[in-house]
C-alpha cells in the first residue's frame, strides 16, 4: 500500500531476562483510526505501548512513526514528533494547578505567545469539562477527574497519535459513557490507540481491534470479527 501508516512495528521484541514479554509483533496503524489493543492480563500490552512511545528499549525489531524509524529515538523526542501518551496509573502533577498541569503538557508543542497558550489550555480543559476548576490543585480532584485531567494533558498536545493506556480504569459508569463520547469527538482530529480492559468501551469506540496474547498478535479485525473469533474467546476464557 502506498499510503504510509502513522504507526508501524516490525518484529518488535522485548525480553526481560529470560521472559519474552513482546514477541515479534508486527502491526500497522493507519492514520485516522481508533484502534483498540486488548488482551488478557500479562499479554504484553503495557510493554508494547512502552516500546511504541519509547519508555522501554526494544530488544529487537523496529518502530516506525510516519514512516520514520524511531526505534532508538528517546521518548521525549517521540512526544515532540506528535505522539502523546497518558499513563495507566494516574500521573499528574499533584502540587500544581490544573491549568499548570495542562500548560506543562502544551508548552513543548507551543510556539505562540502566552495568550495562545492559555487559550489552548482552557480549550483542552473544556473538552473534558474541567475548565471551571483550572486554578485548583490537581491533587484535590477526585480520581475520575484526575483521569480526565490526564486526557486533557494528552489532548492539548494536539497529537497525531494519542495513546491512552487504560483510560477508563476505575471510572464510574456515567464517567465511562462521557469518556466514550469524548473519544468519538477526538477521533475526528487524531488517531487513537486505546489500551483497554473494558470491552464495552472497546466495542463502542474502536474502528479496529488488535488482540495480544502471550506477547504475540493473536487476532486483528473489526469489533464484530474479533467478537466472533474463536481464538480470542478461548484466550479470554482460558485466562479468566
Amino acid at each position: 500500500m502506498a499510503a504510509v501508516n502513522l504507526l508501524e512495528t516490525k518484529n518488535l521484541t522485548k525480553q526481560f531476562g529470560g521472559l519474552t514479554a513482546v514477541n515479534g509483533v508486527s502491526f500497522e496503524l493507519p492514520a485516522g483510526q481508533v484502534r483498540a489493543l486488548i488482551g488478557p492480563n500479562g499479554a504484553g500490552k503495557s510493554t508494547l505501548v512502552g516500546l511504541l512511545c519509547g519508555r522501554i528499549e526494544a530488544t529487537a525489531g523496529d518502530v516506525f512513526f510516519e514512516g520514520h524509524k524511531v526505534t532508538h529515538i528517546p521518548a521525549h523526542k517521540r512526544i515532540g514528533m506528535g505522539m502523546a501518551y497518558t499513563f495507566q496509573i494516574t500521573s499528574i502533577f499533584g502540587k500544581l494547578s490544573l491549568h499548570e498541569n495542562v500548560a506543562l503538557a502544551a508548552r513543548p508543542h507551543h510556539k505562540g505567545g502566552a495568550g495562545d497558550l492559555d487559550q489552548a489550555v482552557f480549550g483542552a480543559l473544556g473538552d473534558v469539562g474541567l475548565q471551571d476548576r483550572a486554578e485548583e490543585l490537581a491533587s484535590d480532584l477526585s480520581y475520575g477527574h484526575q483521569r480526565l485531567l490526564e486526557i486533557a494533558m494528552g489532548i492539548v498536545q494536539k497529537p497525531k497519535l494519542l495513546i491512552l493506556d487504560e483510560p477508563t480504569q476505575g471510572l464510574a459508569d456515567v464517567e465511562v459513557e462521557q469518556f466514550n463520547a469524548l473519544i468519538k469527538r477526538l477521533s475526528e482530529t487524531s488517531t487513537i490507540l486505546l489500551i483497554e480492559h473494558n470491552m464495552n468501551v472497546v466495542m463502542e469506540t474502536a474502528d479496529f481491534i488488535t488482540v495480544l496474547n502471550f506477547g504475540e498478535v493473536l487476532a486483528e479485525g473489526t469489533p464484530q470479527e474479533v467478537r466472533a473469533n474463536k481464538l480470542v474467546q478461548d484466550a479470554y476464557l482460558g485466562a479468566g
Binding site: 512511545c53 519508555r55 528517546p74 521518548a75 521525549h76 523526542k77 512526544i79 515532540g80 501518551y85 499513563f87 500521573s91 499528574i92 502533577f93 499533584g94 502540587k95 500544581l96 506543562l104 503538557a105 513543548p108 508543542h109 494533558m153 498536545q157
Partner: peptide, 15 residues
Amino acid sequence: AIRENEERAKMLGYN
C-alpha cells in the same frame, strides 16, 4: 515539573 514527576515530564516531551 521534573522535580514533581520526572517520568511524567519526560512523557510530555521534555528532555
